[in-house]
Amino acid sequence: MLKAKQYIAIGLVGLLMVVLYSLDIKGLVKQENEGEQQAEMQSTATAGGANAAALKAEDVTSVSKQMISASLAADIEKLEKQAKAADGTKKTELQQQLATKWDDVNQPAAAAFYYEEVAKANPNYANWLKTADRYSEGYQNYADSTVTVGLVQKAIEAYNKALEFDKNSLDAQTGLGVAYVSGTQNPMQGIQLLLGVVKEDPKNQKANMNLGLFSMKSGQFQKAVERFKTVLEVKPTPEAWFYLGTSYENLGQKPEAVLAYTKAKELAADPNLTTFVDRKIKELSN
Rank of each mutant, 00 (worst) to 15 (best):
T184E: 02
S22N: 14
K280N: 08
G212P: 04
S145M: 11
K161R: 15
A73F: 06
R134Y: 11
L16W: 08
Q185M: 12
V149R: 04
K81A: 15
P108G: 08
A132E: 00
K91H: 09
S285F: 07
N127F: 00
K229T: 07
L211I: 10
I76H: 02
E157P: 02
L211Y: 00
E249V: 02
K90E: 04
P187Q: 09
M209R: 06
N127W: 00
A45C: 11
D75T: 14
Y125R: 14
S22P: 08
D171H: 07
A260T: 05
L15W: 07
V225F: 02
G35F: 12
V63H: 01
I68G: 06
S247M: 07
N168H: 12
T46C: 05
D278K: 14
E58N: 13
T89Y: 06
T148M: 04
E256N: 09
G48D: 03
M209Y: 12
S136R: 11
Y243C: 05
G219E: 09
V231H: 02
D144G: 07
A9F: 05
V18Y: 14
V197H: 01
K3A: 12
Y159G: 00
E36V: 15
S285M: 13
N186L: 09
K167Y: 07
T44V: 11
G252Q: 13
K282R: 15
M188V: 13
D171I: 10
A179H: 01
Q96I: 06
Q205G: 07
S215V: 03
L16I: 15
A83W: 00
T184W: 04
N168L: 12
M1Q: 11
T100L: 10
